[in-house]
């Protein structure tokens, strides 16, 4: 008989940035969740795209304050979006003060429109579901 061996603790997994996987019963070809892009769906990255789509370009400081992020976190999200070709980051100076501007690309606009369409469709289904359960 062998003594019970201590179970090694599971390594901590970082909090996922992407949404939970779509349940199989929803993942048919017609469900709006298929329109959700993991790069865009993350809340803060979606916020960055939403704000930059509203302006010709947005300044790093505005994004940081509007989204309530630290500079490091915002930089990380921008790197992901820039790597996916969804935003362009421009560095420059205003007088002696360094400024970083973020501009959405055509690809970013397209991804945002797809994402918002999918979310709208999901919200519509949610509302319809609630209506049906009440009825």
């Amino acid at each position: 008989m062998s003594a019970a061996q201590p179970v090694p603790p599971e390594p901590e997994t970082p909090e996922p940035e992407t949404p939970e996987p779509v349940p199989p019963e929803l993942a048919d070809g017609r469900h709006p969740t298929n329109g959700l892009d993991e790069t865009v769906h993350q809340r803060h990255r979606l916020g960055i795209l939403t704000i930059t789509a509203e302006a010709q370009r947005a300044e790093f400081g505005y994004l940081r304050e509007a989204l309530g992020l630290t500079a490091g976190n915002l930089s990380r999200h921008l790197t992901v979006l820039e790597g996916a070709g969804m935003v362009q980051v421009e560095k420059g100076y205003s007088g002696r003060r360094p400024r970083t501007w973020v501009r959405i690309t055509g690809q970013g606009r397209e991804a945002l429109a797809t994402e918002l369409h999918a979310l709208t469709e999901l919200a519509r289904r949610h509302t319809a579901g609630h209506g049906a359960s009440r009825g």
Binding site: Q56, A58, E59
Partner: peptide, 10 residues
């Protein structure tokens, strides 16, 4: 205005 608020109008 863009420099002041951090958002540029096209």
């Amino acid at each position: 205005h863009a420099r002041r608020v951090g958002l540029a109008t096209p």
